[in-house]
């Protein structure tokens, strides 16, 4: 094993030099280090100006997504070891405007998440005094997978459609809409349909499937999108044969 490894890090400071550059840092190599540990070493000991996000360093807060040697990954869950002997190229997630260095602008996602109404919608809410809504483990299985999304944005970074068509609602937001649509406690599918059935909703997706490949939590957004398309199509045809029903 080498003593050190080189990282080529994407640097961009809007009020500074203008064009982004790659800066090379040499850090100690340790078997148990993740890419994030190497970045922290740079920040603490070599260059305090390096900017990136991180928090839980256990793969659940979703802060530290970056592009490492071309792949979108959580840097707190990606060892240095497979990239030896290096150099290892670290860039911000693709598809997002860069604020600075490795920090992307995520406001677009937050706005889209809100648009799909990711909360329980019911015509009547039952008071807590009447206890829980019953939900069997099988009913929970229907949506559980989609509830595991940590909003890390790797799927947006991997999605070729989002890059070309920034209005696309995108994999995570659609998976989260489905998480509620498929929840036995929810009655909001029709309201969400207005957003999902728009051109920039599910129909933008050409089922490339990259989103599900890069997802660190096995959420399978591509599956969520395909399933929604099938359901929406069936619903449309049903509406043609059932009077009084609109898609």
């Amino acid at each position: 094993m080498p003593d050190t490894v080189k990282l080529e890090v994407f640097r961009y400071r809007p009020e500074g030099e203008g064009a982004p550059v790659y800066e090379t840092f040499e850090v100690p190599y340790r078997d148990e280090w993740m890419v994030l540990d190497a970045l922290n070493h740079i920040k603490d000991h070599q260059d305090g100006t390096l900017s990136y996000r991180w928090a839980c360093r256990m793969g659940v807060c979703g802060s530290c997504g970056m592009t490492v040697n071309g792949e979108p990954v959580l840097t707190c869950a990606t060892y240095l070891e497979p990239f030896l002997p290096g150099p290892i190229r670290v860039e911000p997630l693709h598809g997002f405007p860069v604020i600075r260095d490795l920090v992307g602008d995520l406001e677009d996602f937050v706005e889209k998440l809100q648009r799909v109404k990711p909360w329980i919608i019911r015509e009547e809410e039952k008071p807590t005094s009447e206890g829980e809504y019953l939900q069997t483990p099988e009913e929970m299985d229907a949506y559980k997978r989609y509830s595991m999304c940590i909003n890390c944005m790797l799927c947006y970074a991997a999605c070729p459609i989002y890059e070309l068509e920034p209005g696309f609602i995108g994999p995570a937001a659609i998976a989260l809409a489905q998480r509620y649509n498929l929840d036995s406690r929810d009655e909001g599918a029709r309201e969400r349909h207005e957003v999902l059935a728009e051109h920039e909703g599910v129909w933008s997706c050409t089922f490339v499937g990259e989103c599900s490949i890069v997802c660190p939590k096995d959420v399978d957004p591509a599956g969520a999108i395909q399933r929604y398309k099938v359901d929406a199509t069936l619903d449309f045809f049903r509406s043609l044969v059932t009077p009084g029903r609109s898609p």
């Binding site: 909360w119 329980i120 809410e125 039952k126 807590t128 005094s129 206890g131 829980e132 809504y133 019953l134 939900q135 069997t136 483990p137 009913e139 929970m140 949506y143 559980k144 509830s147 509620y180 929840d183 406690r185 929810d186």
Partner: peptide, 22 residues
């Protein structure tokens, strides 16, 4: 208990017994 039930009503996927109860 009421706070936890409220979370359930808001959609928290609490693990369930086979009969659907918390």
């Amino acid at each position: 208990p009421e706070e936890m039930l409220r979370l359930e009503h808001w959609g928290c996927p609490w693990s369930r017994n086979p009969d659907g109860r918390i």
